[in-house]
Amino acid sequence: MLRALTRPLAILLGGAAILVYFVPHQAGQWVEARLVDWLVLLQAAALVAGILALIRRQLARVRSGSLSQRIYPMLMLGSMAAMLIAGLFGTTAATAFGALYGSVLQPIQASMLSLLAFYMASAVFRSFRLTSAPATILLISALVVLLARIPLGEQMIPRISVFATWIIRGPNVAATRGLWIGMGLAAVATAFRVILGVQGPSGGGRS
């Protein structure tokens, strides 16, 4: 019964969300505000469902895995419980929650971000090893832009920054805009397919 209502509801609410974009009247704003409110509620409920699924999965691993396989799920569940309990006593920087966040979580996030620098260097090296014509153009463009960004580059090749600026503002912008136009058109078409139930989360699913 509920599943039968999914498609009409998706069409109705999706259509309303599109329509309010063209209606500046306060009635349109009211509808938009209600839709956003419902979305927030749904997201909150979905987050609870997600966390429960996470706990269930980790508990299953603790029960079924070998000793070495149990370490990470236990660590994860222990950390979650510690943050939850610490959060009950306040979430400011001076509290235990703030200390855990600032001393554990933030350094973990920072270390993940710092990995990006190494991965980027690795990706650049792999790109430069390619031997096709597009890879050669990529290599030349990258070298020009890299050299133009350092003082030594202008000393070595005068006016290289002019060429680098042309690469960034010319071919680069043209390619990016081309991608954006294609993505914009495809996004509208995809949205219609999903809203009308032709394909996607509202129309597909287990049958």
Partner: peptide, 18 residues
């Protein structure tokens, strides 16, 4: 979380890992 909920609907035999 929302993607998790919808992916759960799509998967026939097990739930996704959040």
């Amino acid at each position: 979380p929302m993607a998790h909920a919808l992916a759960s609907e799509l998967l026939p035999r097990h739930t996704p890992d959040f």
